[in-house]
């Protein structure tokens, strides 16, 4: 690790000021991914602003009937929060499918959104990686790309976003509240993460001096019909090869609302709203699910080692929808 200076902010304004005042500064909260990457010199800030004391560490009801997850609430506290368990069980499931209990006890909700990819080449400084070192190339395209994207990749980067939590948040249409020197704004979840294009070094649309203050869940939690399926190389403590968050709103066996978000397949949690709309006002049955799955994977493109992901994604979508259609609690 390279040396850095440290300061602790007691409130949001100080935090934002501190990060603007120091060159090459970053916020640190849970630190579980930031320190990991600093240790291998993939990230090397000169200053860290500790934001673990700025409040924003509670879960509260919002006026519109939704739920506000403070950015500094840990992943574990979120997953086990009674309101989350009751109203947003999809989110609880997705969080608990990720990382390990120890990591979930430290990692925060804001930080979860900012996790970097697990691409081997991003993690290995001796190899080419446009995300790590813009312009150096992408070793994964012709390398070992079993983990890599099948949607939305570019010739510059085929990395995937590793979060499970974010897949659920994408399905739930969460909103990310952020604050920066110019005030606060709301970023719809689908606009929070970005596709790599020709600037894969940028994972999100969060500005460098902005800080996440909360993740807001809309009132609709799909507690009756949801599933999170995570396919991975071991039964726990592994990143997703393909994961699916599926939610349905069903009335008299007719689908009124449907969301399908995929993880492990793109640079961001992947949604295809056009495909999802195929389900609306249709019966909740296998034929319909197969059709939407086919529509989603139609635009998938694989690389040498990840071709299986396309069919795995298709099947996982169908399975997830089948299960979601049957969950009654």
């Amino acid at each position: 690790m390279r040396p850095f200076s440290y300061s602790r902010a007691e409130d949001i304004d100080t935090a934002v000021n501190e990060v603007t005042a120091h060159e090459d500064a970053r916020f640190i909260a849970g630190g579980t991914n930031l320190l990991d990457l600093m240790k291998i010199d993939v990230i090397h800030p000169q200053h860290l602003v500790d934001i673990t004391h700025i409040a924003h560490d509670t879960i509260e009801n919002t006026e519109d009937g939704g739920l506000r997850l403070g950015a500094l609430v840990t992943n574990a506290d979120t997953a086990y929060h009674p309101e989350v368990e009751k109203r947003y069980p999809l989110l609880a499931h997705a969080i608990l499918a990720g990382a390990s209990p120890q990591l979930r006890n430290k990692a925060t909700d804001g930080g979860n959104l900012l996790q970097r990819t697990r691409c081997y080449y991003f993690y290995d400084k001796t190899t080419a990686c446009n995300k790590r070192e813009p312009g150096s190339g992408c070793a994964a395209i012709d390398g070992y790309n079993r983990l890599h994207a099948i949607f939305g990749a570019s010739e510059h980067c085929i990395a995937t976003h590793p979060s499970d939590m974010c897949v659920a948040l994408a399905a739930l249409d969460a909103r990310v509240q952020v604050t920066g020197p110019d005030g606060s704004r709301t970023i719809p979840f689908e606009d929070f993460h970005r596709l790599p294009g020709d600037t894969p070094e940028k994972d999100t649309n969060l500005r460098e001096d902005e800080i996440i203050t909360s993740v807001d869940l809309p009132p609709k939690g799909f507690a009756d019909h949801y599933t999170y399926i995570k396919n991975r190389d071991r039964a726990s403590y592994a990143f997703a090869l393909v994961s699916v968050a599926a939610t349905l709103e069903i009335e008299d066996n007719v689908i009124k609302d449907a969301r399908i978000a995929l993880g492990g397949v793109a640079h961001k949690p992947w949604r295809n709203k056009e495909a999802e709309s195929l389900l609306i006002d249709k019966p909740a049955d296998r034929d319909g699910f197969q059709a939407v799955a086919a529509a989603i994977v139609k635009e998938a493109k694989s690389f040498r080692y990840n071709e299986f992901k396309i069919e795995l994604a298709r099947r996982s979508i169908v399975r997830a929808l089948m299960e979601a259609s049957q969950t009654y609690q």
Partner: peptide, 21 residues
């Protein structure tokens, strides 16, 4: 990775050893 001649999944996140589950 034969291009680099390097074992590329060189950590315990990506070299999978069986876990309790």
């Amino acid at each position: 990775d034969h291009h680099y001649g390097r074992f590329i999944n060189h950590d315990l996140a990506e070299y999978h050893i069986a876990v309790n589950a």
